[in-house]
Amino acid sequence: MSVDEPLDDTNSPSRPFADLGPVTLLAMLESIGLEPDGRLLELNSFENRVYQLGLEDQPPVIVKVYRPGRWPDAAIAEEHDFARALAAQEVPVVAPLDCQGASLHHHAGYRFAVYPRRGGHAPALDHPETLQWLGRLLGQLHNVGASDAFAHRPALDWHWMARQSRDNLLAEGWIPHHLEPAYRSVTEDLLTDIDAAFRRAASWQAIRLHGDFHPGNILWTDAGPHLVDLDDCLSGPAIQDLWMMLSGERAERTGQLSELLVGYEQFRDFDPRELHLLEALRTMRMMRYAAWLARRWQDPAFPAAFVWFDTPRYWEDHILALREQAAAMQEPPLCV
């Protein structure tokens, strides 16, 4: 897989986890020398499958079973290597365990990794101290990310995140007929605006990123935060790991960004030209999310969990949200 290919593999089987049951999961652990005690708890995950499994006379572990067909082994190995490199520099990330000399394992047609269990809760993003702490964490993470490069992970590219997402939805008939003209119009304008934003940002530095740095992937404890789920790690601009911490009105987002950068710039300089990308990246994520749901719709877990997706109301709301983004894309970038 080249670094320009998209994160989502459309050739994944339609029922990728049909044979994944308790017997298989327990056998997975036994295959790498661990002794499960039969306790099993399924955790919230849709792209992959994630479980907490109990062990005999040891703390429980987290088992992540990768979606078949999505990543080649080399890309998963880079995910694990990046996590270990971060942990070695005391960046608080939950890295996979080495069992029998490896972190990526194969059993019964599945690939899986085992992680230590770590608790925590979502960060309080309305506290300036929390934002500064997360900024420091990201500054450290990006210093490690800039020290090497991915060879098998994708690079952030708006063409596949936005244009390809749009084209796939249209080609596969997901947009209700009466809404298709509105969807075509707003997305065509947005693609033009996204292209212009990347041109204004000029030659930003591509570094290794977490890639999906949202509050659900940050576990907070009394000792501070730690990060989980590097499944979407990729190369791209630093702002990709910052923008999902920002919400609310413009004044609120400006204040949040300022606090993040207070912490971030204690470890690493931030290129303000990347602020031209902020709303473009938000728009790209919205477009890609809709395409991701469509792409995974044959997986039985998706219709059960996202019952609202395949309805005209969803697409009406989606188009409205994209129009709001079109207005946001016309505003000047945030100032810090």
Rank of each mutant, 00 (worst) to 15 (best):
F150K: 01
L322A: 10
Q100D: 15
H80K: 08
E324D: 14
A304M: 12
P22G: 07
W71A: 00
D241Y: 08
W160L: 04
Q164F: 05
P300M: 08
D231Q: 02
E324W: 04
E78Y: 02
V93M: 07
E5I: 01
A304F: 01
D241C: 07
A202P: 00
E5H: 11
L53H: 05
D73P: 05
P181H: 14
E172L: 10
L246C: 07
L281I: 15
D231L: 03
L170H: 03
T283E: 02
Q240Y: 12
W71K: 07
E180F: 05
F198I: 00
E78V: 01
F213S: 05
C335W: 07
L34S: 05
I218P: 04
L320W: 10
A206Q: 12
A171G: 13
S103G: 06
R153A: 04
H318T: 10
Y183S: 04
P13R: 03
R15M: 03
L53Q: 06
A294E: 10
L7R: 04
L29V: 07
A122Y: 02
W158L: 07
V228F: 01
V114Y: 08
F150P: 00
L156F: 13
F267P: 00
D229A: 06
L191V: 03
H106L: 13
D81C: 03
D231F: 03
D8I: 15
C99D: 00
R285W: 10
R268I: 05
P13H: 07
G135C: 10
S185L: 12
Q140R: 15
S2C: 01
W204Q: 02
F270K: 05
A151I: 01
G54H: 09
P72A: 01
V144F: 09
V228N: 00
A238H: 03
L260V: 14
T192K: 07
D271K: 03
L138Y: 01
Y289P: 00
V63I: 13
R200A: 13
A327R: 14
H106I: 08
P300S: 07
M28V: 09
P22F: 00
H142V: 06
G54R: 09
G33V: 11
H177E: 15
A124Q: 15
D157I: 02
L25F: 11
R166H: 11
Y183P: 07
D212N: 10
H318M: 12
H214P: 01
L104Y: 09
G21R: 06
P96M: 08
G263D: 06
H214Q: 11
H210I: 08
A149Q: 13
L29P: 09
I239W: 02
F267E: 12
E78I: 05
